[in-house]
Design a protein around this nucleic acid. Sequence first.
DNA 1: CCTGTAGATTGACTGTTGTCGATGTGAGTC
DNA 2: GACTCACATCGACAACAGTCAATCTACAGG
Lengths: 126, 126
Amino acid sequence: MTAIREAALLPVADETVCGPVVTEVPLAEDDALALAAVLSALADPVRLRLLSVVAAQGEVCSCHLQEPLGRSQPTISHHTRVLAEAGLIEGDKRGKWTWWRIVPERLSAVRDALVVIPNGQHGPAG
Amino acid sequence: MTAIREAALLPVADETVCGPVVTEVPLAEDDALALAAVLSALADPVRLRLLSVVAAQGEVCSCHLQEPLGRSQPTISHHTRVLAEAGLIEGDKRGKWTWWRIVPERLSAVRDALVVIPNGQHGPAG
DNA sequence: CCTGTAGATTGACTGTTGTCGATGTGAGTC
DNA sequence: GACTCACATCGACAACAGTCAATCTACAGG
C-alpha cells in the first residue's frame, strides 16, 4: 500500500488550451483498491466508535460492545469481522470470550498512505 | 472532529467474569458520523486515484480526469462532487473549465483523527 | 443570437452494505 | 451427556453507492 503521493512536480496544465495532457495516475489501481478496502472498513460510525472503545480499553470482549454501541449481537459480530478482515483489530479467543485489540501498525499504515502533502503543506510548483 | 483516542488507561476488564463493565464510548456519535462521512468519500478506488492525480498535478480540470481514470464524464463529475462535499478538494471555475485542487488541511485533519495510538506504539496496561 | 463545448444533473440499473431475527457452533459448566 | 452461554452464520430486507446514457446549463467565440 503505497502513498497517494509519489510524484509531485509534474507540469501544471495550461490555462487556455486544456489539451490532451494524458496525465498518468500516480496511484496504481491495485494500491487504490487495497487502500479503499481499509478505508471502507473505517468509514462507518459504528465501527469508528467500536474502535474507539477497543483503543481506550486496550482489550474488549464482544459482549462489552453490544450495549454501549446500541446494536444487536449479530451486528456487532459483523462489524468486528469487517474490522478484523481489514487488519485493524485482532481477536483472541480466551475461554468463552473473544477479546479484541487494536492493530496499531495497521492504522498507522492507513495514516501514512494518506500523506499526499507533507503535513498540511502544499505547493504545486512555485 | 476529535480523535478516536481520548482515554487510554481505563481499567482492563476481568478475564473470568466479563460482567457489565458499562464501557463509555470515547468517540461521540456526531463525531463518528462526521469522520465516517469523510472516510466514505475517501473509501473509493476511483476517488483515491483522482485525488492522486490532483495532488500530483497541483491543479487539474475535469476534462483531464476522464481519460486517465477510465470513467465517463458524469461519473467523474459525481466523484469530484463527492470529494468536494467532503471538503477534500476545491473547485475553481475559470473560463470554460473547472480546476480542482487538494485541500491539504482536510486530509491532515482526517489523518489526525485516526490517531488512536501515538505512532505505532501500544500498551493496554503493561 | 447561434453554435460548440465543459461539466452538472437526472433517471435507471445494479451491486453492496447495515441491520436484525433465527439458527448454528463450540467451548465451558453441572 | 445435557445445558448454557458467547459468538458466528444465514436469510431477508431496506438503504445506499457506482456507473452510464440522456439531458440540461452556462460560458466562449463567431
